[in-house]
Write a protein that binds this DNA or RNA. Structure first.
Length: 219
DNA sequence: CATCTATTACACTCTAAGGT
DNA sequence: ACCTTAGAGTGTAATAGATG
């Protein structure tokens, strides 16, 4: 499915409260399972859940918790970094990274989660196509963020007191820890470049709230 | 310096994919 | 067929930072 098709579908259900879109059973899952809303959105748009890198044939779906005005209440998760850690350490060309392909064409969907889950709703989406002239400023921010973060990670590894990576920030993009325990253990990241573990747990790319504020101002 | 707010690190659930 | 891992989604406690 292409992003545009999903955008049309989404905008037909934007503003309708969840209890009028989802079944009682689905509503129960939304309350119990913290990650369910994004998955139900994918299913409602006609996507299949998968762990492939991209949601659409030509782009990515990103939903985020916000208030009734669309003000973001959380950072936006992008992807884990363990699979591309050596690309980051070696500062691979931004346009050739999995990160770029993931964020170069985004359908951003704010999800208003105020009060009773029955009254939650999707808000109108924002389509961010980095090739559009109006988003040229975003491209340079993200490119700068990417190389800045790469350098910060290397700095942590080579000169930090523990030799491990730590939270690294750009203007819009951030790398910070994101992992869970399995049998009491995290999932450390191993670097082939250094031939050793460079973290004690997994880390991920996130968009900071500034990203949302900026794309809202551009629209 | 006490209190409020934002950020950071960690926690949790589910699914697909891949190995045995 | 079963188990493990990675990746998608989130929530929240504790800390750091801002503010009166």
């Amino acid at each position: 499915m292409y992003l545009e098709e999903a955008r049309n579908k989404l905008n037909r259900i934007a503003g309708i409260k969840f209890s009028d879109i989802f079944s009682e059973e689905q509503m129960e899952m939304i309350i119990k399972n913290k990650g369910k809303t994004g998955q139900l959105l994918e299913l409602t748009l006609g996507l299949n859940l998968s762990s492939s890198n991209m949601d659409f044939a030509d782009g990515e779906l990103k939903s985020n918790k916000c208030d009734s005005n669309g003000k973001p209440l959380e950072t936006v998760f992008i992807k884990q970094i363990s699979s591309m850690i050596d690309d980051l350490i070696q500062q691979k060309e931004f346009k050739e990274t999995e990160l770029y392909s993931k964020i170069s064409n985004i359908l951003y969907v704010p999800v208003c989660k105020v009060g009773n889950p029955n009254n939650w709703m999707f808000l109108p989406s924002i389509h961010i196509d980095l090739n559009e002239p109006k988003y040229a400023s975003l491209y340079s921010i993200w490119e700068n963020d990417y190389y800045s973060i790469c350098k910060q990670l290397v700095e942590h590894i080579e000169n930090g007191r523990d030799g491990y990576i730590h939270t690294s920030n750009g203007r819009h993009i951030q790398v910070r820890s994101k992992d869970s325990k399995n049998n009491g253990k995290y999932h450390p990241i191993y670097s082939n470049t250094y031939g050793r573990y460079i973290s004690n747990k997994n880390y991920a790319f996130y968009f900071k709230k500034e990203f949302v504020y900026d794309i809202q101002n551009l629209n």
